[in-house]
Simulated scan of single mutants.
Amino acid sequence: MGRPRTPLLDRERIGATALELIDEQGEFSVPQVARRLGVQTGSVYHHVDGRAGVVELVRERVSASIDTATLGLRPWDAALTAWARSYRAAFAAHPHAIPLLMTSPVRAPKVLRQYEQAVRLLLDTGFPMAEVMTVITALENLVLGSALDLAAPETMWELPPDSPGTENLARALAATGTGRADAAFELALDAFVNHCRVRLAPPAPHSGRPAHSGPAASADSRP
């Protein structure tokens, strides 16, 4: 019997299967991946460096949906905003993967190259080297938290009828329209980008002589 034209096992199939399991049950194990693929667990380890290697295949698969062309847009704030929206959409499609990927070090080469693009964008814009990763981490916290929020119920607060002491909360909930998660994300993203603009702005020049008080001021005013 000849060898099958399509390999029974490769890194792409391993990553896809692990992501399927995560989407279904919120977690995966290498033996589960092997069983679903109809192979021995040891066969999976021939293609990846342990469970951490499978996690990175999952990261690559989820991140592949992020439009990295957004990082080439100009001005910088348009690029950062578009990247954040695409990033959120990619991870919102797989919310169960977020806790796993947020708590595992990033090693996947394709994903690291995307971070390199983001770092270069911020450096070219004028952010100090020491602040670049802080800006990226803060943006990711916003994006991934909002991606989880998209998987939550539209209404996260359930008040019993005539609930005492929550009258203002009830009115605020009644006044809230649909698309709560999207509206909250856009508000937070706008605030984040505006804060970045402020940090980039040069300090305002001092006008006039510095103010003095007390005896020194009187002495300076003498002819």
Rank of each mutant, 00 (worst) to 15 (best):
P4A: 10
R107Y: 14
T125D: 07
R59V: 05
P153L: 14
W157C: 03
R180W: 14
A181H: 11
V33N: 05
E140D: 12
V132Q: 14
T6Y: 10
L200V: 14
T68Q: 12
E154F: 15
P128K: 06
V62E: 03
M156D: 13
D23C: 01
A82T: 12
T6N: 06
H212R: 01
R113F: 12
L80M: 05
V193N: 08
A84K: 02
L144E: 07
L187G: 12
A118V: 10
E12Y: 03
T166N: 01
Q40A: 11
P75A: 01
E24V: 05
R107V: 02
R197F: 12
A16P: 01
R209Y: 06
P161G: 11
T155C: 15
P109L: 03
V54K: 00
H96A: 06
R74S: 06
D77P: 02
A170Y: 12
R36E: 02
M1V: 07
M129K: 14
L19C: 06
F192R: 11
V62M: 07
I136D: 10
T41K: 12
P164A: 15
A79I: 00
E60P: 06
E27P: 05
R85E: 04
R13H: 06
A90D: 10
R36C: 01
R5T: 02
H47K: 01
P164Y: 14
D182E: 14
H206M: 09
S63G: 13
R171K: 04
A69L: 12
W83G: 08
M1L: 08
A89Q: 08
A217L: 05
T134M: 08
E167P: 11
E24A: 11
V135Q: 08
L80S: 05
H206N: 11
G42N: 12
A147N: 05
P7M: 10
R61Y: 05
Q40L: 01
L139P: 04
L169Q: 00
S86D: 08
T70V: 14
A97V: 10
P95C: 08
T178E: 15
L139R: 10
G126Q: 15
S207A: 13
G53V: 06
L187T: 03
M156L: 14
T17G: 00
L173H: 06
P75I: 02
P95E: 07
I136F: 09
R13F: 00
V39T: 00
A64P: 03
R199T: 14
V132F: 10
A64S: 06
A64E: 05
P160V: 09
N194P: 14
H46E: 07
V44F: 03
P4E: 09
D49N: 13
V33I: 00
T68E: 13
R113Q: 13
G145H: 02
I14L: 07
L21K: 05
A82K: 09
F185P: 02
L150R: 07
T134K: 04
